[in-house]
Amino acid sequence: MKGSIALHWRRIPERYRLEGTHCETCDSYYFPARRICRKCRRKGRIVPYKFSGKGRIYSLTEIHSAPEGLEDQIPYVLAVVELEEGARCTAQIVDVRKKDIKIGDGVEMVFRVVQREDPEGLISYGFKFRKLH
């Protein structure tokens, strides 16, 4: 959200480095980080976990009509990525058009500009993925 500095800043460990959580009780992985295990609730033992950044395309689309802040990036491939630990996240897939990528393809996390505000505003960075060859 534009103009909200802390909103992005507090998510830097997750957005820059894929730091999520792991429930030691049921072996579930959470990205983004959750403090309450969805399966074990209060019995869950949640510890920090840094994801490897490797995963697969679970579903994908190509966005042609962008929301405010991403107009300059269209068209871009957006996917639900299944990380190798099991958690899923939504992210852009870089340097690729839809004809070159499909469900099941391997991907790896990259660090890119996610949104740029107007020339006087902040630049937000974070994870995207690239297709593995």
Binding site: D72, Q73, V110, F111, R112, Y125
Partner: peptide
């Protein structure tokens, strides 16, 4: 560079 690359993102790679 792609539109979402800059000196910071390339430095990270």
């Amino acid at each position: 560079p792609a539109i979402d690359e800059d000196s910071a993102t390339m430095a990270v790679v």
